[in-house]
Design a binder for these strands. Structure first.
Lengths: 341, 341
DNA sequence: CTGAAAGCGCTTACAG
DNA sequence: CTGAAAGCGCTTACAG
């Protein structure tokens, strides 16, 4: 006879001398089990390395023990760092993480039409994804608690964790103004799809607003693809002007790194001739001595995970965090910015 | 809230006037259902917008439709890129990806002792993890097809996808030798745990071997922590010698980037005074004009996914023949290497 | 506090 | 080709 490969609840029940009903109750931490019985059951479960079958549990009306995490892509610093924060938290409570990446618009379309997560997860975390009305409706049809992290908060007060992108832009531009720059341009990034990423819009809004408050009307903005090369091209465009700016606010560090590359290749010294500042505090920013506005990325993932777990009743004793969490950003001055000459 | 979907197989059976057994067979495309019956069932299912319950299906002996992916951490370029490749492939076949990260030794220990993936996945992909005998045994107890990707291939001929790290080192050092360097040092990286990462060992072996074949005995090697800062310190150590090398082979691009930082800060020009080469072709390598030996990372993930999906049809874990795929690495010459002066 | 029993929605021998 | 029935491993009223 083929040896049974997995230990089930019956095995635990037998080993601890109780019924499976009691095992089920004890394992889920329900009341109505005596301390002695509970201890016996828990140690039997430990000894047998028992794992509840999510299928059976779910089929009987219990939770799946899984949370879906939906992320545009995973091979980019920001997303993978958020994901790491989420995974950290899930790990501590034994929640399984089902990863959904939507790298192409085809994948994205497929995801929202087929809803592959349906009936498979207890909750969902959506990272940085601006959703159409249709997509939001489909997501609702998952019928599970959902929290959004990164990107821009929705208008309809859904659970959200992120930063204030407008404020981040303000901090960056404020720094440039404070050290004496007036001629400040922005290299703005846009996704190559036509999706309106709220992050992008908020950062440029912050730029314009801060400039306007400083009495500097109509600052130069060039819009490029969201990539290092995009940043390079953006800076090339700025340098081709009759009078290039003395400082450049870049939408993000990746854009800024591209801008720095162009400046280096053009033999223009940073920060003596041009100051450059980004947003994010990407690991490469420190390497390139780039001044930036740091955001706590991993922490955003962590908090989002806690919020979503809290919504499931698994939160800690202090209760679930506020449903909308805005984390602070912080100016990090390095060597790429200095007063204009 | 959206009305819960309650259409089950019984509803489809009733509507098409057959038993649920026939519905099950027809829906899974099994033979043994007449064409007429099948058509009737399929259209009934379509009309009711029926979706099979994965839980019930699995509980009755079907597959889970999930694969576990085990990765040391996800917030690092190499791992997240492999993961992206895996996710790409899984997406095309509708396989769900359960992500397990083992960022700390505690998490790692917990994972192998509790085996949280047990009974939850049809297969597993293990990324870059050197395993102890104990850990390997535990992994076997998942009793599912498992493929290893990245890191070094195991000696016991398990399915594996990766590169030849010895050859990569050889390509890097060969380049330095070819352009005329004799005084070549290596900055070697070591994990801060005591786990013997085969990748590390293979790269240093490749270094020593290539140097020896060139008649250059006892080259200098400094061992540092596997990080950018580690690379920085490694280079500081080399510079403190009475006669620094003219070229440095770095264990990886991250190490090399740290080394470049130290050189820049020390006012030593690259490649005029010192040549630097890395391994990986990390995105930052291009930005820093770093010569390197590129490895196809995303492709490794893709192939591993295909291998593991391919193994799923073959019944039990012992069935499919071990597949070993070694992908080629490629020298990418940029501006950080030049003949010695 | 504890257990026997009825499902949950499927798949799969086993019989016709 | 088709169906009745026995599970799969849980959760949860319902009784004691």
């Amino acid at each position: 006879m083929i040896p049974k490969q997995t230990v089930n609840m019956t095995d635990v029940a037998r080993r601890s001398g109780v019924s499976i009903a009691s095992v089920s109750r004890a394992l889920r931490g329900e009341s109505g089990v005596s301390a002695a019985t509970r201890d016996r059951i828990l140690s039997a479960a430990r000894e047998l390395a028992y794992v509840v079958s999510p299928e059976a549990s779910r089929l009987s009306g219990g939770p799946t023990g899984r949370v879906g995490v939906i992320v545009p892509r995973v091979d980019a610093w920001f997303y993978s760092t958020i994901l790491a924060g989420i995974a950290d938290e899930f790990d501590t409570v034994g929640m399984d993480l089902i990863l959904c990446t939507l790298p192409t618009s085809a994948a994205r379309h497929r995801f929202f039409e087929a809803l592959p997560l349906r009936r498979k997860v207890d909750a969902a975390v959506v990272v940085s994804l601006p959703l159409s009305a249709r997509e939001r409706t489909r997501l609702d049809q998952l019928a599970v608690p959902t929290v959004f992290v990164g990107g821009h908060r929705t208008e309809d007060h859904r659970p959200w964790v992120g930063i204030d992108d407008e404020r981040a832009a303000q901090q960056a531009v404020g720094h440039l103004l404070r050290i004496g720059h007036h001629d400040i341009a922005m290299i703005q990034a846009a996704d190559d799809t036509d999706i309106p990423w709220a992050t992008d819009q908020a950062r440029i809004r912050g730029f314009h607003q801060t400039m306007q408050e400083a009495g500097l009307a109509d600052p130069t903005v060039v819009t490029v693809k969201w990539s290092v090369d995009g940043g390079s091209h953006g800076m090339e465009t700025l340098l081709s002007r009759s009078r290039p700016p003395t400082a450049v606010f870049c939408h993000s560090d990746e854009i800024a790194l591209g801008a720095l590359r162009t400046l280096r290749r053009s033999g223009i010294s940073v920060p003596q001739q041009v100051s450059v500042i980004g947003v994010d505090d990407h690991p490469a920013a420190e390497l390139s001595d780039l001044t930036t506005v740091a955001q706590p990325v991993r922490e955003q993932g962590r908090i989002a995970a806690r919020v979503v777990l809290g919504g499931l009743g698994d939160g800690d004793a202090s209760g679930p965090p506020a449903s909308v969490t805005t984390l602070p950003t912080r100016l990090v001055v390095r060597g790429s910015t200095a007063p204009p000459r």
